[in-house]
Design a protein around this nucleic acid. Sequence first.
DNA 1: ACCGTGAGAGAAAGCGCTTTCTGATGGCAG
DNA 2: CTGCCATCAGAAAGCGCTTTCTCTCACGGT
Lengths: 340, 340
Amino acid sequence: MARRSHPSSRGRTISDVAELAGVSLSTVSRVMNGSTTVDAALAERVREAALSLNYTASPLARSLVLGKTQTVAVVVPDLANPVFQGMLRGLSSAAARQNYHVLVADSFENLEEERVLAVEARRRCDGIVLCAPRMPDEELTALLPELAPVVLINRDPSPAKASTVSADYHSGMQQLLEHLYGLGHRRIAYLPGSAAAQSNRKRLSAISEFADGHPDVMVTELQGGVGFEDGHAAADAVAASDDTAVLAFNDLVAMGLLSALSERGVRVPEDVSITGFDDIPFARYTTPPLTTASVPIEELGRQAWERLWALLNGQAPAYNLSFGPLVITRGSSGPAPAAA
Amino acid sequence: MARRSHPSSRGRTISDVAELAGVSLSTVSRVMNGSTTVDAALAERVREAALSLNYTASPLARSLVLGKTQTVAVVVPDLANPVFQGMLRGLSSAAARQNYHVLVADSFENLEEERVLAVEARRRCDGIVLCAPRMPDEELTALLPELAPVVLINRDPSPAKASTVSADYHSGMQQLLEHLYGLGHRRIAYLPGSAAAQSNRKRLSAISEFADGHPDVMVTELQGGVGFEDGHAAADAVAASDDTAVLAFNDLVAMGLLSALSERGVRVPEDVSITGFDDIPFARYTTPPLTTASVPIEELGRQAWERLWALLNGQAPAYNLSFGPLVITRGSSGPAPAAA
DNA sequence: ACCGTGAGAGAAAGCGCTTTCTGATGGCAG
DNA sequence: CTGCCATCAGAAAGCGCTTTCTCTCACGGT
């Protein structure tokens, strides 16, 4: 009873339409897919029948036979992070324009989970975007063939030759350092992200490079993190140090620090300058507004889609893309205080 | 050549496994699905074969025959909004625990898009969550049967009898008003959201109700909005008015206002008190930290999943759920200034 | 020795489509 | 009038599975 008796339009199959229109399944299929080899009158009758039954082909069945799902997966390490949200947004809006759907999976920074999630998600769709994957190089490389077509965001393709889109954290950090240096800062603290993350290593290499070229600068690494709380927790260490500027791993950390500093009566930027990284939408609305290295994160998402789209169409992987961040100078950075 | 010659594990079908193990498809299927009516030795052989081919059943084919996709869709009006992100996060993590996948669609506040998106997404999965749908009541009601099983977030089921989960904006606003009243504020401004949104109407009704009960209070409606910029833009009007407190539609608006006020040298809360709504993660890190009505948004997402899960298992729709927000008093609200 | 029984494996149907293959029809050249 | 080709519709195969149905075989009871 279930199927036939259901009054709704759901569960309608192509045979229902064929029957109503008095033609064969093949003909209905041909009409629905715009084949030209169907008599105009017949086609019209089929269309009417389909309309009256509110019929649309089952995407599932189509996917099975066509071998494509019109869906791509995105795996992010943390959906709560504005950076990944922005990426997801750019990606999903771009994909939607091509009538593709997006399956999203949050690995919660869990390495184990990440691999399983990726493989499982990938099987349900045509391609996958891995956003800042946490897994080690060898593991990733081994996984890549199984995931293809795949696009990597914010991750060096290193040994693997995967299509990647990323922000140039090295350049961003370098610019930030130059910005602070230009303001007279010589003692600078860095609040690092998670050691394993590639984006952290890039920042560190920029720092050591800069330090090498500027013997008069001293960069100290404090206890850092990736979220508000971590920045908040770093306030005491920052206040205790004689650093005149702090490079936070990202805007979130910077905001946490800003907030904690303000509680302690430490003035920004008079007493200490703070910089973030990413330029999340909130950055310009902190007090004072945050100086940060701006990463066009939605654009990264869009580009990731473009690449995946190319891959899906059998095109060779395009050159890897890297966005050089732009330092946005706002109120949180200023001249180094005269007396250290 | 394509299939056979591919060295990877992809494209392996159940017949490959059957062949390798020297059994029939049926047997492989039974083993993979844990049927007990298979001889232990055979089962072992099948498992080995599957392992050696790195075989897992095609989710697509399974979905087609099983009639379920292990996937649910979520439609949100704006992926950039922290509120919907939080919801999505709670929902996706809960769904993941049940091994369900999440298809996400952003309607970009576009009414037209919303319906199409919902219908299309729904066809690819087993159920759908509509988050604060913008569409008018009649349209929604008409759509509901086609979408079922469906859960609504932050939307009155009104005429339709759909399972819903929501925050009690009326109560939240009421508490906020009482909070400000208790601090001595008598002239209060409200920065409304979009007029069509149910959550805005709820706030308004709380306001007019409160005003009725407190003739000594005067609540003025200014030009509002839903994002930073809107709050930022409202600063002049706020500064020009003689209101001593501002109820922003949400935390985003409050933050924009906070930032603009600070630029103008208006002190918060000494000159004017500001309250937000939602308690997004950023709210506690503004300067000053934002007093707001806290909505357990991730929990809303989780609950939405629970409901959908129940529906998927054929259980009757549970009672509708409403979370009463909690006013979190932080630094942005204080006693009304003595001189108006 | 015979039949009923039940366990366990394979054959086959079917999920809802697309597409190739096959067949019928009609027009037109020879 | 015959034969050939083009045109278009239907039959059927097949996408990769699950599950029902069917069959075989060994076992035990009488």
